[in-house]
């Protein structure tokens, strides 16, 4: 884990699709695996609400976005406000890779949980990559 650098993970959380729920669950699973005070999550809608603290965070720290669909709202929102995500994971891409589909928006089911596990793994790998890059600097 980085000693001083923070890494932000931003989930789409899209309410309209089951993949939005999966993105939330995956981020929280990754938090459980990483168990680091240097990994933080940011509320995406807070960007629009104009929270300076949230915006400054994405300028100053590396971020990973977890997108529920191809519209990539989290990545676009961060770029809109001057940030540049280090990595983007799209839930629908991982669905294709793993052939795991969530059951519904409320209950993602067993396959949805496995899908979230797979995404959490990917998040952890991206975090490790960013940490090793930071260590080299």
């Amino acid at each position: 884990m980085p000693k001083s650098k923070l890494i932000g993970i931003v989930a789409c959380s899209g309410e309209e699709i089951p993949e939005g729920t999966v993105s939330r669950v995956a981020v929280l699973k990754a938090f459980g695996k990483l168990m680091s005070p240097n990994i933080v999550t940011t509320c995406l809608p807070l960007f629009l609400a104009g929270q300076q603290q949230e915006r400054e965070f994405v300028w100053a720290h590396p971020t990973i976005t977890i997108e529920g669909c191809e519209k990539r709202c989290a990545e676009r929102a961060i770029r809109m406000y001057g940030g540049n995500p280090k990595a983007t994971i799209v839930v629908t891409d991982v669905e294709k890779e793993t052939e795991l589909m969530p059951k519904s928006r409320v209950y993602i089911g067993e396959k949805g949980e496995k899908l979230a596990d797979a995404i959490a793994e990917k998040i952890c790998k991206e975090v490790e990559k960013i940490v090793s890059e930071c260590d080299k600097e």
């Binding site: 899209g14 519209k71 929102a77």
Partner: peptide, 12 residues
């Protein structure tokens, strides 16, 4: 029905 709040955030 519901819509994705992030889509509003990015001005869809």
């Amino acid at each position: 029905d519901t819509v994705c709040l992030p889509l509003l955030v990015i001005g869809d």
